[in-house]
Simulated scan of single mutants.
Amino acid sequence: MMDDAALWVSLPMPAVLLDENDLFTDLNPAAEGFLNISSRAVMGTPVWDKLAVDAPIEVNLRRARAQGSPLFVNDVDVGCGNRPPLQCNLSFAPVSGREGVMILMIYPRELAHRMTQSVSVKSAAMSAIGMAEMLAHEIKNPLAGITGAAQLLSMSLNAEDLVLTDLIVEESRRVVKLLEQVEEFGNLSPPIQMAVNIHDVLDRARRSALLGFGAEMKIIEDYDPSLPQVLGDPDQLLQVVLNLLKNASEAAGAGGGTIRLRSFYEHSFSLRRSDGTGHALPLQIEIIDDGPGLPQDIKGDVFDPFVSGRENGTGLGLALVSKILSDHRGWISVDSVPGHTVFRLSLPMAK
């Protein structure tokens, strides 16, 4: 039978032990990752100094402790450190044989929702992409004919009518470009995986951005120099980072803004599937910007194909990013409020 210590370490959700004064007495690895701090650093300190809960629960917690009964708090925003608040469910329960000691278990809802949502939409999304890819091939041929005919027509028209043929050519090329993006999404090759220094990838993306679309942006590097190598395809990972940097730069507008590239190690982060299999994703990369944030109405669907917050956006950029991360057996998430958007990439470590 598994002992108590092994059970404590194996719990997939953040769990904390609190004494009768609500001081930390222990954290499991998932809680260390959630709080981004070691158990040794917080031992004996007040839990409410590290955990901000958007609900008045102290009185109810004292009552539950006195009565030896559990306490459940659902749908509350829980914040810690620099991380934006996450909506969570909280469970408090007395620990048998230890008077006044309570166990707090935290259930972040965003990740669970994204996992369920991604399973439900994946099949439909890939069917839509497959149909769009097939149509792209069929539409490009007649578009080439329309463009050629408009260019021939323009040779015999006066300057006033040339505006119309120029419009035909311009719009036809725009549609062709969109169709090529659809084809690129459908034809993405499997990643050629190897040990990759992710900081080299981030530096290449940063330099490329500053020379082009991100020339007006300030890009800050905040790296953990001891970070191990990532298992991945360097070119595809570069494509992911460039796409996220471009989105942040375009959202900032002509006035520019600040992007922070951050890397760190989170040993407790793992991805577990419904079939019980799972793997660790300890390497974390964050792209943080101070732009206007994601539109509220699409915030939960930004990784789905054809969802875009820009007027002329294709809605394929973030879907492609999500697909690449999925092919790497990684994970991408986003937290966004006006003035602070964080895209986090969670990746496996090279052996």
Rank of each mutant, 00 (worst) to 15 (best):
G257F: 08
D203G: 08
A93H: 07
N312V: 06
A30M: 05
Q239M: 12
Q67F: 13
D161H: 07
N247A: 02
G33L: 06
E216M: 07
G148T: 14
I259W: 05
P282W: 05
V175R: 14
G68Y: 05
V163E: 06
V169H: 10
G81V: 14
A41P: 15
S270G: 01
L211Q: 12
N21E: 08
A31V: 12
T314Y: 10
S38H: 13
T258F: 09
S268L: 04
N36Y: 15
W8T: 00
G291S: 10
I57D: 02
Q229K: 14
E160V: 04
A209F: 04
H328Y: 08
V59N: 11
S118C: 03
L167Q: 14
A254H: 09
W48M: 09
M1K: 08
N89I: 00
P282D: 06
L227Q: 10
Q87V: 15
F24Y: 11
I288K: 01
P292V: 01
A112E: 13
R63N: 11
D54Y: 10
A136F: 09
F303S: 01
R63F: 10
M43C: 04
Q296K: 12
I168G: 08
A64V: 06
V53P: 08
S326C: 04
F264A: 02
D166P: 10
A144L: 13
S270M: 00
S249W: 03
R329Q: 10
I103H: 00
G100M: 04
D327C: 01
D224C: 01
V163I: 06
D335Q: 14
H137C: 06
I57A: 06
T25M: 03
E170K: 14
S118R: 13
P292W: 02
I198C: 12
E311P: 07
K323C: 06
V9D: 03
I285T: 07
G330V: 04
S156E: 13
A144H: 13
G339H: 13
F269V: 07
F303I: 00
A15H: 00
A280Y: 02
E250F: 09
K122R: 09
P14V: 00
V47W: 11
M115C: 03
V196N: 15
E286N: 10
G257N: 10
A5Q: 08
L61W: 12
F213K: 04
P108D: 00
T25H: 01
F269I: 05
P338C: 05
L188H: 12
G68A: 03
E170G: 09
D222T: 03
S154I: 04
N243Y: 01
N89E: 05
V9G: 00
S96H: 10
L283Y: 06
K122L: 07
R207F: 15
S91A: 10
A66D: 14
L61F: 11
F34H: 11
P348K: 05
Q239K: 12
